[in-house]
Write a protein that binds this DNA or RNA. Structure first.
Lengths: 194, 194
DNA sequence: ACGCTACGTTTCGTGTCGATACTATTAATT
DNA sequence: AATTAATAGTATCGACACGAAACGTAGCGT
C-alpha cells in the first residue's frame, strides 16, 4: 500500500477510459465522436445561463473555436438548434432538438453503471461519492476551472419559499426544475472552512 | 437523492474530464496529445508481456492502426524505442527512451491529485477506492475488455517463495519488481464469489 | 465617439481515429 | 510438407478534433 491517492487516481483514470470508450462505441452507431455526445449530454442539463458555446467550451476544457466547429456539425445533423439571444446579440442559445433528445435516450448512458453499482451498499457508495466530490472541487478550483454544479449546491441560490428559488447573482426566479440543472456560474457552498 | 449511482457516475465523468484536460495542457508544452502521454504512461508500467502496440491498443480501446500512427510519431521524437522480438518476428517491443522517461518525470502527473486528496482520511480513501475498483472490474468484464491489472492481483501469479514469483500462464519467473507492473493477460482473483 | 472586452466564427495546420487493404510471421490442418 | 488460418504490424484514405490566430460584431466603459 504505497500511496492510496495514486491507486485511486489510477482507478478513476481507468474508469474514465471506459466511459470514453463506451461513448466512442455508442457514437459510432450515429457517426458521432465522444465529444459530440458530451456536448449533447451537457446541453441536456444546462440551465438558462449556461446553454451557450462559450459555457460548453469551459465545461469541456476546449477552446471556443474548436467547440464552434463541433456545434456546426451537430446543427448540420439537426441534433441541436441555435438561435440568437434577444437581449444580448452576442450570445447564441443552444438547445437540443427532439431528434437530439432521442439520440440521448437511445444511448442509455448510465445504464451499465447502474447495473455495475447495484451490488455496492448505498452507504459506501455515498461515502465514495463524497470523497470524490471533495477531490473534484479542490482540483477544479486549483486548476482555475469553474465547477459547473447544480444550483442547489450553489451559494448564490436562495431558497425563498416552498418550491421558490432566486439566484442571488442574476436576481432572477428559478423554477424547482431549474435548480437541479448545471450552471456556469456555480460556486460551491463552503462547508468545512476549518 | 434520486440515484446514488448516477451522481457517482457524474462525478467520475467530471474527474475524467479534468484528468484529460490536465493531460492536454501538460502535453501542449511538448507538442503532445493526451493520447501520447497515456501511451508513455502505459509503457512505463507495462510488463514484458504487454509492451507491444497491440496491447497498448487494447488498453486504450483503440484500433491497432490508430495506435500504430501515434507510435510512429513518438518514435520520430525519440520518446520510445522499437525493436523486433527475437523469438516472435511478428512482435514489436516498445520501450521508453531516457528522453521519454524524462518527459514523464517533468509532467508530474499525479501531483495535483496527491495534494487534493491529502485532506481525506485514509480509511475513507481506501473505501472509495474499493467501491470504484469493484465497479471497474464489473464494467470491464461486462464490456469484454481486459482488466490490465498488476500481477500481484492476478490469479495466474504464483508466489513460490520470498521475492520469488512465477506466472502460471507462461511458466516464467518474474522479479518482485515485475509483479507490480501492468499485464495484458491479467485476470483478477475472484474473492467474493458469493 | 472612443477604446475595451466578451462572444462567436473562420481558416489553417497537425494529429486522432476507424475502416480497409496490405505484408510478414507463426500456428493449425490437412 | 503444403495449405490454410490466425496474429502482429504497417500504409493509406477520409472525416473530424483541436489549438492558434485573425476576424467580425455586440455590449460596456470612459
Amino acid at each position: 500500500m504505497k500511496n492510496q491517492a495514486l491507486t485511486l487516481l489510477d482507478t478513476v483514470e481507468r474508469l474514465g477510459h471506459l466511459l470514453r470508450a463506451g461513448l466512442r462505441q455508442a457514437g459510432t452507431t450515429n457517426g458521432l465522436q465522444p465529444m459530440h455526445l458530451q456536448a449533447l449530454l451537457y446541453l441536456n442539463e444546462a440551465n438558462r445561463y449556461s446553454n451557450t458555446p462559450q459555457a460548453l467550451a469551459e465545461y469541456l476544457g476546449l477552446t471556443k473555436g474548436t467547440v464552434s466547429q463541433s456545434l456546426l456539425l451537430l446543427a448540420r445533423r439537426r441534433l441541436i438548434a441555435r438561435h440568437a439571444d434577444e437581449k444580448d446579440g452576442r450570445l447564441v442559445r443552444l438547445a437540443l432538438t427532439d431528434k437530439g433528445k432521442e439520440v440521448l435516450k437511445e444511448l442509455g448512458v448510465g445504464n451499465a453503471w447502474r447495473d455495475a453499482l447495484q451490488q455496492a451498499s448505498p452507504a459506501r457508495l455515498s461515502s465514495a461519492t463524497k470523497v470524490l466530490k471533495e477531490a473534484l472541487a479542490i482540483l477544479q478550483t486549483k486548476s482555475g476551472q469553474k465547477t459547473f454544479g447544480v444550483c442547489v449546491t450553489c451559494r448564490h441560490n436562495l431558497h425563498i419559499g416552498p418550491r421558490s428559488y432566486v439566484c442571488g447573482l442574476t436576481k432572477e426566479k428559478l423554477s424547482s426544475r431549474e435548480v437541479s440543472k448545471i450552471c456556469r456560474e456555480h460556486s460551491p457552498i463552503e462547508e468545512n472552512v476549518a
